[in-house]
Design a protein around this nucleic acid. Structure first.
Lengths: 160, 160
DNA sequence: TTAAATTTATTACAGCTCAAAGTATAGAAG
DNA sequence: CTTCTATACTTTGAGCTGTAATAAATTTAA
């Protein structure tokens, strides 16, 4: 039975991937002064318009608390504004400032160029396989959803 | 050309996986008082005997600095000792204490039970595919190695 | 031998991350 | 109106993480 070994390997590869992601974030900081999570939050706001913290947090897969601290930093630097909801004053809507839109123009790709190139070079079916494995892992790791979920719907025809 | 969409999806799934890993670490803390990185460092020391910080850092895919701070915490709690090298006094060898070995016995699996079950339930070829995709991604994301490397050697017949 | 370069580990710093506790607001029930 | 409950966000506390700057020891070169 080779599964235990496979599980160990899964863990090792995941750690490497997490580390690589972190290193890439540091590289991106040098290039544009923003971390990847910051950029993801900015993009999320850009895409969704005025959004609540909750919506951002869902959209970028981070906790509300994390998004709040990221928004704090972005607000300090004048990239976003917070606007209290008119009707419901508990709600905070985040909004890009002009400066925020500008800085967003300057952000580099969030995946390393090497990755992009090599992924591009893969055959279509290989890309699909990698993506589907990734989706599968994400789903299996998500302890909240107990389901065995739909799966296999990869190529959602979506923007960007 | 669907690649840009694929790249976006890769990013999204990666973030979900990273988050799930983090959440699992929090769960493990509750179960045994140690985080996943701490356990990985402990296991690494257990497996390799007296090891240098550098060796640990390679083995767990973390920077030297990170391993140092983790070792600090583990040393505070008396799970490891640091022993200066005799010949080369720059070197620090980490060593498990008895307490460290004990606590290691109590650590739960580092992957969520749900993941383990579902991964177990996959066909052998599916496991291999997932693993190989993961390895591929890890490799493509590793900006240090420029190579297109060997790849495809999955089932290393190794311990644990 | 002395100076320079390299290696090994640590410290300082900034940001990410979450759970849990706290704050403020809103809505419902009495 | 008051109290209870739920919601939306923020704060707090602790750990992870990496780079850059040190510090200490070793090795190499002059």
């Amino acid at each position: 039975m080779s599964t235990p070994q496979h599980l160990h390997d899964v863990l090792v590869h995941l750690r490497r991937i997490i580390r690589a992601t972190d290193l890439q974030s540091k590289r991106v900081v040098k290039a544009c002064g923003l971390t990847i999570p910051q950029i993801m939050v900015l993009r999320s706001i850009e895409e969704l318009g005025d959004v609540t913290v909750r919506r951002i947090s869902d959209s970028v897969s981070l906790s509300q608390a994390t998004v709040t601290t990221i928004l704090n930093r972005l607000e300090d630097r004048k990239y976003v504004e917070r606007v209290r909801g008119q009707k419901d004053k508990r709600i905070v809507n985040a909004r890009l400032t002009d400066l925020g839109m500008q800085i967003l123009e300057t952000t580099p790709p969030l995946l390393h160029e090497k990755f992009i190139n090599e992924f591009d070079a893969l055959e279509g079916w290989e890309q699909t396989q990698v993506l589907s494995s990734l989706q599968r892992i994400a789903m299996m790791m998500d302890a909240e959803s107990l389901d065995a979920a739909p799966l296999l719907v990869i190529n959602s025809p979506d923007a960007q």
